[in-house]
Design a protein around this nucleic acid. Structure first.
Length: 281
DNA sequence: ACTCTTGTTAAAAC
DNA sequence: GGTTTTAACAAGAG
């Protein structure tokens, strides 16, 4: 499930490969996965690749964009003659022939490169949007967790009057964006805060510590190339490494690194939540 | 056959 | 209006 570090990993690796490339053809294999007119994108050249929250923005040279959201199972795989020949095949087990049965969109680029959008569950999408439409979407979002504008004071104020669980609050994109289930669970454990506590019950120092840990786990996730759990993979099919160092996510029954307690799993807001009852209060 | 999985949003409920 | 809860989306694993 791609969160901020996973999306950032994709963007950083895709950017140098596709900027300057021209979109020659788009094959839509699943209507739901590609929304908007092809007229605005075929023939256009890519100007930049950016991330905002968990969105990927492929900016074109004609005031249009391809906005991509991977949701839970989306993948972007980049293949070109040079990456295939020069880099060899990845060892990851994704190497069923492309396109696979989950390939929903194939974008053919200049220099014989192809960008495959795979998405098992078809929750993800690619939308053709004008610059104004993209700006409108982005303006609705709270700032990225790792953005300098997200300070302890900012977060503390945002949490006042909110009775929802702190875990749900820090995953609320209107508060701040980028944290999903994996990194939210880990940040709360590292900050030793119980995920079910009412958001407004946290003291200012607790908010400061939680925010600090949130930024740290996201930065660590970026450094390790994201977490390959379920479906996430790099654009060349390789895996990230954050899944090997999670604090609590996916570690039910194992020992907490803070206190040695046993990690348990509860349900919060309909979502699986890992925590250590021993040290998270 | 049934439950469980998740990011986001829309709608209903307060 | 703001906040909170619930369901829906889809497909596959167990």
């Amino acid at each position: 499930m791609p969160e901020l570090p996973e999306v950032e990993t994709i963007v950083r690796r895709l950017q140098p490969l596709v900027v300057g490339s021209t979109i020659e053809q788009v094959e839509v294999r699943k209507e739901k996965s590609f929304q908007g007119s092809l007229d605005a994108v075929v023939g256009a050249t890519m100007l930049s690749v950016e991330r905002r929250a968990k969105f990927i923005r492929l900016q074109l040279d004609n005031n249009y964009n391809l906005l991509v959201h991977l949701k839970m199972t989306g993948q972007l795989i980049y293949v070109s003659s040079t990456t295939r020949v020069g880099g060899g095949h990845p060892t990851a087990d994704w190497v069923d022939e492309l396109p696979s049965k989950h390939t929903r969109v194939i974008i053919s680029l200049s220099k014989s490169a192809q960008l495959f959008f795979n998405d098992q569950r078809i929750f993800g999408w690619i939308k053709v949007m004008s610059d104004d439409e993209v700006r409108f979407i982005f303006d609705q979002l709270g700032p990225d967790v790792i953005d300098a504008s997200v300070t302890p004071d900012y977060l503390y104020e945002k949490l006042q009057g909110r009775s929802i669980a702190i875990k749900q609050a820090i995953m609320d994109n209107s508060v701040m964006s980028g944290l999903g289930n994996i990194y939210a669970c880990d940040a709360l454990n590292r900050a030793k805060i119980h995920p079910a506590r009412p958001a407004k019950s946290l003291s200012k120092p607790e908010v400061a510590e939680l925010l600090s840990q949130s930024k740290q786990v996201l930065e660590l996730g970026i450094k390790l190339g994201g977490a390959t759990i379920e479906h996430f993979m790099h654009i060349d099919g390789f895996s990230g490494r954050y899944q090997d160092v999670t604090a609590v996510y996916g570690r039910e029954g194992e020992a907490c690194y803070n206190c040695g307690g046993t990690i348990s799993k509860i349900k919060l807001g309909g979502r699986g939540t890992y925590l250590c009852e021993g040290c998270q209060e």
